[in-house]
Simulated assay, not measured.
Amino acid sequence: MTDDALPSWNEGATKQAILDFVARATTPGADFVKVADRIAAFDNDGTLWSEQPLPPQFDFVFRRWGEEVKSDPSLAAIQPYKALVEHDMSFFAGVAAQDPATIETLLKAFSRSWTGSTPEQFDAEVRVWLETVKQPKFGVPYIELIYKPMLELIEYLKANEFRVFVCSGGGRDFMRTFAEEAWGIYKENVIGTAADYRYIDGQIIRAEEGLGGLDIGPGKPEHVFAQTGRLPVFAGGNADVDIELLESATFAIIVEHNDDAREFAYTSGAEKSFARAAELGWTVVSVKDDWNTVFGHIERV
């Protein structure tokens, strides 16, 4: 890294607001935050990597379910397989918005697909997808579409003794597969919608049941607290399902997707969150105006 801890961020009010908050939080005074309380939590889809045209995990699972329908055509009569076969865009809109009822349907299918598997088996399947499947607009693997400015922000916070967590409605185990190499975040700092596990005959095996409910809406601060015993002082998100996480933090940023040339421009699923941002004074991060680089990796010290 250069002397500028956030080189992919343009100079301006947004970058300065982040720097000022971290300076206040780490300098003795009225806004000082003890090291033990320096918790930062970020959503993943649309906050740390691109989520269009659908969150990447859905590309992964839809491919698996497509193969399952080929093996068992009777699945085509039930959701979510039915929507896949019929190209039901209304169902997919619920997926993109992370609608709880739609997600519940998906979780049942997840159980059907991966119950009884080991973490190693699931990781291997995810890695094949990461290495072979390309995002349709950019023609590169999804793992190449992580936001470089956000990686710099994670490293900056870590350098200032923040513990950084990812808190996403997406699958915890899916994100854990690449968390350490992609984000520089340990697996245990990844919070997401999760399966339960059992230790059977010397192996950890994925159980049918979910663990702790959906990690969306109020589930986000609830899960952060359950894992850390604290609420975040710094939080980042981009959508309505992140409102409660952002509300729970002392300082919040919300990513505005308004650059169709370098990424995507959209507001669907984020209308309420930006209204709340205006009410509470969250810092809005404009992809178009605040980032001089969108995608890329960084060198870690």
Results as ranks from 00 to 15, higher is better:
A83E: 02
A101V: 12
A83C: 05
S90R: 11
V85T: 08
L75R: 15
A97Y: 01
A83S: 15
K82C: 07
A101R: 11
T102G: 02
P100M: 03
A83G: 06
D99E: 13
K82Y: 01
Q79Y: 01
V85A: 05
P100K: 04
P80S: 07
Q79S: 14
P100G: 03
S74D: 08
D99R: 10
T102C: 11
E86P: 02
F92I: 10
Q79E: 15
Q98M: 11
A83D: 03
V85Q: 05
H87G: 15
S90Y: 11
A97H: 08
D88M: 09
D99K: 15
E104N: 10
Y81Q: 01
P100A: 13
E86T: 09
V95G: 05
I78V: 14
E104F: 09
S90V: 04
Q79H: 09
D88R: 06
K82Q: 07
E86F: 01
I78N: 15
S90W: 05
L84W: 00
A77Y: 07
A101T: 09
V95N: 06
E104V: 15
A93F: 06
E86G: 08
A76Q: 06
M89R: 14
A77E: 11
H87V: 12
L84M: 08
M89F: 07
P80I: 13
Q98D: 10
P80Q: 09
L75D: 11
S90N: 14
S90E: 14
A96P: 04
F91S: 04
E104L: 13
D88K: 12
Y81K: 00
I103V: 15
Y81C: 03
D99Q: 15
D88W: 04
F92P: 14
D88Q: 10
A76S: 10
A77D: 13
S74P: 04
K82T: 07
S90P: 01
